[in-house]
Amino acid sequence: MGQVMKPQQRQLLYAGLTVMLVVIWIFYSANGPQTTAVLAGTVRAATLLALGAMCGMIGERSGVVNIGIEGQFLLSAFAAFTIASMTGSLFMGTVAGIGMGLMMGWLLAAMAVGLKVDQIIAGTVLNIAALGLTSFFYDRSRSLGMGKYTNIDLGPLADIPLVGTVFFSRPPLTYLTMALLVVVHVALFRSVWGMRTRAIGEHPGAADTVGIDVLRLRYLNVTLAGGLAGLGGAYLALEAVGTFSRAMSGGRGFLALAVMIFGRRTPFGAYAAALFFGFTTALQNQFQLNNTFDIPPQFVGMLPFVVTIVVVALSGLVGSMRDPAALGQNYEKG
């Protein structure tokens, strides 16, 4: 459905997976704890990217480019952190983060869909506004008294070697993200909403002539997608880091877009891509921790960004990765 894989692509995928599993097994046999740490770090870094990518893909499937994910992450993280610190409740903080994400999504929709501002500029407004607002209101004295979200073991599953630690002994928002991947997949490719969403991104005129309100659906989708980025912000502040700092999103809102493209705008594809990006980050952390190689940290730090450039360049060269036809174009009736 939606994105059909060719047999060769499928074979390539299986071959790649097999090789990967073998490599992981070899490393695990050689150095168990370190392999586990790298893979756990991979999943940790992938969660934020996956949420951002889902936010981006719902927008893009509807024909709206969202380059403001970075700002959505940042302001939602700020809201989540501030409310959690004020109320003493991580849950309330998470709700606030999602709420802020929805508001930012609504603002983007109001500009890009309602006011027909150029979509790239609209997203840039979000990014600059988020940076300015969080810096202005940032209060250094705040902290999370109760600490951040902690791991929850999923019963016996958590006891499986390697896999258990990596996937089944995680904090709550990571589980929520994994569940959302399934939900978004089913919604996009099986539901009426998803079919209409894909239609307005490919050919809004066609959707319009069968009575689908293109602008309203875009409004709704961009707003809802903002909620996913908001959850990402909450995850960043309350689960991954446990505090807020200036510009803490650190470009991951942009990386999420690359993850989305690499994952062909499908949730599972995006998660695979997110794991790959997460792996580079986790590896970088391990290198730095252990001084494994004598590579300056700045060069390791560049890696995800360089990889993104390569990915975006390749996605243009590889014809199979096609953008939704109406992506980036504001829709005028008639």
Partner: peptide, 29 residues
């Protein structure tokens, strides 16, 4: 890159910002 591969300049220039940040950090450190 945009002209030859179609890579969108917005993504590429943002990524190059981070690369430049790291590179200049390293040079000056």
């Amino acid at each position: 890159l945009k002209a030859t591969t179609g890579a969108h300049e917005v993504i590429v220039t943002i990524m190059l910002n981070f690369v430049a940040g790291n590179l200049t950090d390293w040079l000056s450190a």
